[in-house]
Amino acid sequence: MRIIFIYLSGVGYPQAPGGLRGVRRDRVKRFTAPMIDRPFTARITTFSRCGVDSARAPSILAAMKRQSGFNIIELMVAIAVFGVLLGVGIPGVESYIQNGRMTTQINSLSTALSHARSEAIKLNQRVVVCVSENGTSCDAVGTGNGWNKGWLVFVDRNANGVLNKGGSGVDDCAQGATTDCLLFQQKAFDGTNTLTPAVSVPDVLVYVGDGSVRCNTDSSLATLESCPNATTYFTLCDFRGAAHAKAVGISNTGRISSLDKQPNGSALTCP
């Protein structure tokens, strides 16, 4: 696109010395208008869209063509490097996420056990921690469900090992209540991680008023026994196996500890 400027000198418009600077003489045309008593000069010049004489346009276009981006070889090299970085980085990110998930899950069990012990001491009552798949009652003894299915923590006021709630409108946790108070419900873990109990804690464990723990080693809730240290722990595993397993142990006094091996010193095992 060209913009045409006409410079007039003539009637009432004195011409500056030298005329319009930069205008070629072959572009100046003189003519006499009949209706005007003196001749005037029309100077016509053209400018490019950006205000540059069109004679310089080819050199500008040539300079623009010399400014190129990536060629196909450089692009392929960049893609190859990016692919290598993804191959190295993605497994590390996946491992980081899986480790974080396992830490969260094993900490949820440790927190539940610590809370149960604290409530048993505060209330001087039995507090039961049992595996629960349905989230409303303890699983039957001997079902063999892993604790990754979920669990319940409740104050067992009638000491029968069963969650007996008072029904709608009843505050089971009120002071002086005679029904069982549900303290915490853990839902099943997401994913395929397994939380396996040792032989002393297959389904349930109970904290008593002094903070110590009792186990159901004979598969009968009517009687509870002391918990052997060597077989009172839980092992959390994922698809990576025993090399990445985590464990929580429980002492006779009810204290919780993190383990990287079995209490007897053997390596952790996964199902």
Results as ranks from 00 to 15, higher is better:
175 Q>D: 15
261 K>A: 13
255 R>I: 13
39 P>K: 09
45 T>W: 13
186 Q>G: 13
269 T>E: 08
122 K>C: 03
238 D>P: 01
163 L>D: 02
147 W>T: 00
128 V>W: 04
93 V>S: 04
221 L>T: 11
214 R>G: 01
160 N>R: 09
92 G>A: 12
147 W>D: 04
103 T>F: 00
208 V>I: 12
13 Y>V: 15
255 R>T: 15
77 V>A: 11
201 V>P: 04
109 L>C: 02
245 A>M: 06
194 T>N: 00
193 N>G: 03
22 G>K: 09
211 G>Q: 10
243 A>E: 15
138 C>K: 00
133 E>W: 02
232 T>W: 05
64 M>A: 11
228 P>D: 02
183 L>E: 01
133 E>K: 12
74 E>S: 05
15 Q>A: 15
26 D>F: 00
223 T>N: 15
100 G>H: 06
33 A>N: 11
189 F>A: 01
74 E>V: 09
78 A>D: 02
9 S>M: 04
254 G>F: 05
224 L>Y: 12
31 F>L: 13
227 C>L: 06
1 M>Y: 08
109 L>E: 04
181 C>W: 00
112 A>D: 14
42 A>H: 03
144 G>N: 10
243 A>L: 06
224 L>C: 03
76 M>F: 13
252 N>K: 11
14 P>F: 05
269 T>Y: 02
8 L>K: 12
104 T>W: 06
196 T>S: 07
191 G>V: 09
236 L>C: 06
66 R>N: 08
86 L>N: 10
120 A>T: 07
174 A>T: 07
233 Y>H: 15
162 V>L: 09
203 D>S: 14
69 G>K: 10
68 S>P: 01
156 D>A: 07
84 V>S: 11
